[in-house]
Nucleic acid binder design. Structure first.
Length: 942
RNA sequence: GCGAGGGUGGCCGAGCCAGGCCAAAGGCGGCGGGCUUAAGACCCGCUGGGGGUAGCCCCGUCGUGGGUUCGAAUCCCAUCCCUCGCACCA
């Protein structure tokens, strides 16, 4: 019978759905297991990366179910935020790239595009046609009654409850924060809204408030500690500057800077305009050193960056060094500004950072090392980078710095800046590292905006979160450090946005709670979601207080609370490893704050990434493999098995077409062999040692697979169940006559157990075959338990001995090129067995010590020079085998073991087999018997 | 740059924490042979190099360089490379 996944898979999907196999409710008689995974963000189609993400929890859920647990695996849809809105806008404006991705990569038919023109229409389209459909095709054992989106009203009430509670707990504060701000649309924009400068970062410049006759001329720098090395300032003579009243002081900054400062919540009142030229030649005073220096003209000064006036530190900035050198070489440039060239004479670089290995001015050293002689040399950037890095990590401030002297820059920069900010000499502003342009064409600047923050840096909150972390089982184990580090490092987190889908901040509905902040405790919502969605309008936030905080008075809230308490906490949460630094840690934080210890998370398994042909997936590059399409092409079992068997959950996997079709043929072969067995005779439980060996290996496989499953090593489980047992079956088939009823019974038993072990991975095929074999579906038959009575180290040792013997005989046949008629096999003499025991008893198998010990006894002394050789060989042999095998061998009767395999050996080599004891009556024409060792019989082929 | 993880044979991947049984599991791929009219399936063997009419021997090998040790893929130091994260994109 052909393997036809389409038919089998349809059949089981229908049965699961129509009989509601995965719709679970609390049941006091069953242990609850709650498995969750990060809900998908349906701003595009589901691809193979998602398949792995959602199948891994399914496989675990199915395993726990077979272990007898009541398992809840729910699913919902995260639609919060701006990506969906952005995608819709790009579609509506007819952006070609967006149309191409939708139609060619996600394969949305032309006639469906209209549906996608509202945010929820867009989301629903991909939920229904891609995600949910693919998940159902894959046979994920999800309780679909609990499905919801984060835009649903009851969910928003839930989030409202969460945030009102957090506000009550003082975990939210209002403050300002830098954002991308489009100066054309006059509103904040996200990275997705940008045309240029997506990579740009905010940079916080320290503004050093130099004084010009009572007016402040602030100069932006990223290296405030160099303030004592300033010899002059540079201004762009042709740029526009303004004199303005800023926060009550008189400032001069570039025109562009004045606007930025306004956006950054400085109070700016422009009083007059001037050009840079008018500033040239002025003398300003350093607020830290009280020394004075001139402002010089420089065309390279970008008025659009920071304040448009820069300070010059020639000793430590290669740029400044070169600029000043050029000016000194050609002072005539100063002529047009009516400046006396002698002004340059006083500008000697001031070294204020000591750097080991530099005995001259550092900037000069690197400029000369890079052979740079003008400002346009591209090597200047490298030189600057090199010097900045070295000075930052290794440079120490000179004695002039008083309390800050002798420290590395890395260690004191922040303190230094803070000190002078407090003293009123410094302030700060943000700017981008490069030009940033909005999709609308408008210039984007950094603006300071009112925002609500979650105070993830509250020490008591951190402590409590660390307590949560302490009792969570984290896989892979190595990522625990990353959680700890994240908790330690997290600052306040701005948790709202100005627009997007989602829940408005309850006390200020101008703001929407952002996606990483509305997805921290929704696992609790799953436990009652199916009772809420139908109520919709009548659900309000107080209900959640009754369910999650205290026993409600109402019957309804009490029944909800019971359900919550039955399922909670989450036993294991699966999520991508890149979410450790935010989502997963937030998840711990919010549980620490909002739930009692008994409801804290129990386990987290972070998932690796998916690659397609060795590269990370990218919808814009078309490098995605659509989920529904690939499942239909290969069959759900094949896709599941490929993904689960190619890497452990936390490892990256690589999707390639060839290995997938290989997996398909492996499953086909398995199917054919199974069907043949099911249709064949049942056999009878009349077991020979070889059958018992096979059944013993099966028990070991059950144990190992179960242990691996408990550690979430799913790849290991499938390797054991599928490949390792297949190996052992191969040996078994070779070893015995399969027409015996005992053998027939054995192979059917092995099949039965393998179907159970494989059921979580390939549920369709396993259920189908198991039902045909036994009358019930595999997933309803329970996880197998090992029968220790069937495990026999002696039998295992006998098979190992035999397999080694077959190898040895084969290689002798190969090397000698003979086709033997008689094979004589000699088992080791009794005295050699004593040597094995002696070696096994020894703590350290030290040859000399063992020999001298043995030689004290007459029976060994009698054998004289044969003993040391045998001892050496036995020690080698001991090194090659497991302790268990050796112990079994030591007590075994090898002759008897071999006798039982006589027919097998005759058949293998098509020769007659003679078996002797080395120390018994024997035929030994070539004097080979003396080579026998315990566990390694001597051989003579003839 | 900072934080976390990783570099193993043609490929994937175990081993590393607890050093010796590691030329290094298993899978995939490749090669040779068997079975077959034939193909597929199935079975056997080989798959770093070289040698061998007795089950074996020799050389090289776990990113690179050094160290510890009688002994290192495994421990330590240095170095190079890769992946993820570094915050308002989810």
């Amino acid at each position: 019978m052909e393997y036809d996944p389409a038919t089998i898979e349809d059949k089981w999907r229908d049965r699961w759905a129509s009989e509601g196999w995965y719709e679970v409710d609390p049941d006091a008689d069953q242990e609850a297991t709650f498995v969750t995974v990060a809900y998908p963000y349906p701003n595009g189609a589901m691809h193979v990366g998602h398949i792995r993400t959602y199948t891994v929890p399914d496989v675990y859920a199915r395993y726990r179910r077979m272990q007898g647990d009541n398992v809840l695996y729910p699913m919902a849809w995260h639609v919060t935020g701006t990506p969906i809105i952005g995608a819709v806008e790009r579609l509506k404006s007819g952006e070609p790239e967006q149309l191409r991705i939708l139609q060619e990569v996600f394969e949305v038919p032309e006639e469906d595009l209209e549906e996608l023109e509202t945010p929820m229409g867009f989301a629903e389209y991909f939920i229904e046609n891609s995600y949910k459909r693919s998940m159902q095709l894959l046979g994920l054992s999800i309780d679909w009654r609990r499905e919801f989106t984060t835009n649903d009203r009851p969910y928003q009430e839930f989030i409202s409850w969460q945030y009102e509670t957090l506000l009550d707990h003082d975990r939210l504060v209002k403050d300002t924060h830098p954002v991308n701000f489009c100066t054309n649309e006059r509103q904040p924009v996200t990275t997705h809204d940008l045309l240029e400068g997506e990579e740009a970062e905010f940079q916080e410049y320290t503004l050093i408030k130099f004084d010009l006759d009572g007016t402040t001329v602030p100069m932006g720098t990223l290296r405030p500690e160099t303030v004592r090395g300033v010899t002059n300032a540079f201004v762009n003579p042709d740029a526009e500057y303004v004199r303005a009243r800023i926060d009550g002081e008189e400032w001069i900054v570039s025109e562009a800077a004045a606007e930025k400062l306004t956006l950054q919540l400085y109070d700016v009142e422009i009083e007059s305009h001037l050009t840079g030229r008018e500033l040239v030649g002025s003398t300003v005073t350093n607020p830290v050193t009280e020394t004075t220096f001139p402002i010089l003209p420089a065309g390279f000064v970008d008025a659009d960056n920071a304040t448009g006036v820069v300070m010059s530190v020639p000793a430590h900035s290669p740029d400044d060094w070169v600029a000043l050198e050029e000016l000194k070489r050609d002072p005539s440039r100063l002529d047009e500004f009516d400046l006396d060239p002698s002004i340059l004479d006083d500008l000697d670089p001031i070294t204020i950072i000591e750097l080991a290995g530099f005995d001259d001015i550092p900037a000069k050293v690197v400029v000369e090392a890079h052979d740079i002689d003008d400002q346009h040399d591209p090597a200047l950037a490298d030189a600057t980078q090199e010097l900045y890095n070295r000075e930052f990590h290794e440079g120490r401030l000179t004695d002039a710095y008083g309390a800050f002297a002798g420290e590395t820059i890395e260690d004191i920069r922040d303190d230094f800046r803070q000190h002078y900010t407090d003293a009123g000499a410094f302030t700060s502003m943000y700017d981008f590292t490069e030009e940033v342009v909005c999709r609308c064409g408008g210039e984007v600047e950094v603006a300071q905006q009112d925002t609500w923050f979650l105070t993830y840096n509250d020490p008591d909150w951190q402590d409590r979160t660390l307590q949560v972390l302490d009792q969570v089982e984290i896989l892979p184990a190595g990522s625990r450090d990353q959680f700890e580090h994240t908790i330690d490092w997290l600052e306040e987190w701005p948790c709202i946005r100005n627009y997007g889908l989602g829940t408005p901040l309850p006390w200020d509905d101008d703001f929407i709670i952002e996606p990483l902040s509305d997805s921290t405790i929704y696992m609790a919502y799953y436990t009652i979601a199916h009772h809420l969605e139908s109520l919709d309008q009548s659900v309000d936030r107080h209900l959640f207080a009754e369910v999650f905080e205290e026993d409600g008075s109402g019957e309804f809230s009490r029944s909800l609370r019971e359900e919550f308490e039955y399922w909670y906490p989450v036993d294991v949460r699966f999520s991508a490893s890149e979410l450790i630094a935010n989502h997963l840690t937030f998840y711990l934080y919010h549980h620490a704050e909002l739930f009692e210890e008994e409801h804290w998370p129990r386990g987290i398994t972070s998932l690796g990434m998916g690659l397609v042909r060795g590269k990370s997936m990218s919808s814009s590059a078309g490098r995605v493999v659509l989920a529904d399409k690939t499942v239909q092409e290969h069959g759900a079992d094949t896709v599941r098995f490929f993904l689960l068997n190619s890497a452990e959950p936390w490892q990256d996997f690589d999707w390639r077409a060839d290995p997938v079709s290989n997996t398909r043929s492996q499953l086909e072969r398995f199917w054919h062999r199974a069907v043949e067995l099911i249709d064949g005779p049942e056999g009878a439980r009349e077991l020979r040692p070889i059958d018992q060996w096979m059944l013993g290996r099966l028990q070991v496989a059950i144990k190992e697979a179960t242990d691996a499953f408990e550690d979430y090593e799913m790849r290991r489980v499938s390797q054991i169940a599928f490949f390792e047992l297949e190996d052992q079956l191969r040996w078994y088939r070779r070893r015995t006559d399969l027409d015996r009823p005992g053998a027939q019974w054995t192979v059917r038993e092995v099949l039965r157990v393998r179907l159970l072990l494989l059921a979580p991975f390939i549920p369709f095929m396993s259920n189908e075959l198991h039902e045909r074999l036994t009358g019930i579906a595999a997933e309803r038959a329970g996880w197998p338990t090992a029968d220790d009575d069937l495990i026999s180290p002696t039998r295992d040792a006998a098979e190992t001995l035999l397999a080694d013997l077959v190898d040895d005989i084969s290689s002798i046949v190969d090397v000698t090129g003979t086709d033997p008629e008689v094979i004589r096999i000699y088992t080791a003499a009794e005295w050699k067995r004593s040597i094995l025991e002696e070696v096994l008893d020894a703590e350290e198998p030290n040859q000399g010590r063992i020999i001298s010990k043995l030689m004290q006894r007459e029976r060994f002394r009698r054998r004289g020079d044969a003993v040391p050789g045998v001892v050496a060989d036995v020690i080698d042999l001991v090194h090659e085998r497991s302790r268990e095998t050796l112990d079994a061998l030591a007590g075994a009767d090898e002759l008897e073991m071999l006798e039982q395999a006589r027919r097998f050996l005759e058949h293998e080599f098509n020769a007659s087999i003679e078996i002797y004891r080395e120390d018994g009556d024997l035929v030994d024409p070539a004097d080979r018997a003396k080579n026998a060792l315990p566990g390694r019989p001597a051989i003579h082929i003839d």
